[in-house]
């Protein structure tokens, strides 16, 4: 970690540091169902266990609800984003997640959610569930599969677009002297980020309480607790925390474009500085690796409104 406090906005210190993020591949799907409730259930299930590519294979989340008037089949929908290190890494995740969580969800259908000439074979797994009874229909430039299931048909688009210009690992570290107030503020920041299109905050509720550092004393562990930001270790290890900090929460941001991540950083920072001081938030920092690993650097000072 690098940085020093040299800016203060509404009583919240902003570190002169940057979030270091990585180039990733990303795709988007639109999941529809008879009701928004069931579209959301399918989307929530499909994006579950999708916090980090390291342990989950993909980073996934819900981007937004899609009104019925804007979905391919005129039913309520939810747009989900899936990120991985490469298109080849995303494909098996799509196959498993759509196959196990969307195909299985009552009344669901699954469509491409990203216009791009680069395509992933979205239906490559799920359509074969039809055991030969699946039906292909091509309307204009789009091909769909109808897979017979017990409540009728599961409709899935043949391919979905992907981008290799996605960004993963934009982040904000929010520090405070009151754990409840810190959580409330961070929730507000996640809610503000949720309004930005093309981004997700893939961790539980959008928030990480276990920030990591690269490496470990234990063989085989590629990451371990970020002891410099652990308040209970303040007296025992080199620390980045002030004396009054009792908790740190992190928001990790993945976006289909670098601009989307930047917009999300700005929205999150604004939410924190708008209400944070009264909630016991003392400081905002960001995670980086000295700038040597990630191609994308988001300097906090550039995103303070």
């Amino acid at each position: 970690m690098t940085g020093s406090q040299n800016m203060n906005v509404n009583g919240v210190a902003i570190d002169d540091t940057f979030a270091e993020a990585f180039g990733m591949s990303g795709t988007a799907l639109i999941i529809t169902a008879d009701t928004l409730k069931w579209a959301m259930i399918a989307a929530t299930t499909m994006t579950g266990f999708g916090t980090s590519v390291i342990g989950c294979g993909a980073e996934c989340g819900i981007d937004c609800e899609v009104p019925a008037s804007e979905t391919p089949d005129g039913r309520p929908g939810v747009r989900v984003l899936v990120f991985g290190f490469s298109p080849d890494a995303i494909l098996p995740q799509l196959k498993n997640r759509v196959g196990q969580c969307v195909l299985t969800s009552p009344g669901s259908a699954c469509y491409n959610g990203l216009d791009s000439p680069q395509r992933l074979a979205l239906s490559a797994g799920p359509r074969f569930f039809g055991d030969g009874w699946q039906i292909s229909k091509r309307f204009g430039g789009r091909r769909f599969w109808r897979v017979p299931v017990m409540d009728g048909e599961f409709t899935i688009e043949d391919t979905c677009g992907f981008t290799t210009d996605a960004v993963g690992g934009g982040n904000l570290l929010i520090l405070g002297r009151d754990r409840a107030g810190l959580l409330e503020t961070t929730e507000a920041a996640v809610a503000a980020i949720a309004k930005i299109p093309d981004v997700i905050t893939p961790f539980p509720g959008g928030i990480v309480r276990s920030g990591s550092k690269v490496g470990s004393k234990y063989k085989g562990a590629i990451a371990s607790t970020n002891n410099a930001f652990c308040p209970t270790l303040r007296g025992t290890t080199k620390t980045e925390l002030d004396a009054d900090t009792i908790a740190v929460l992190e928001i990790v941001i993945d976006g289909l474009t670098s601009q989307a991540v930047a917009d999300a950083m700005r929205a999150g920072l604004k939410a924190v500085t708008d209400i944070g001081a009264a909630k016991g938030v003392t400081r905002v920092s960001a995670g980086n690796y000295g700038g040597k690993l990630g191609q994308h650097h988001y300097h906090l000072k550039d995103y303070v409104a």
Binding site: R75, G152, E153
Partner: peptide, 15 residues
Amino acid sequence: HDMVFLRLISRFVAA
């Protein structure tokens, strides 16, 4: 049956 694809073809033809 009510099949989702009916909605797709209706919209496609309308467009």
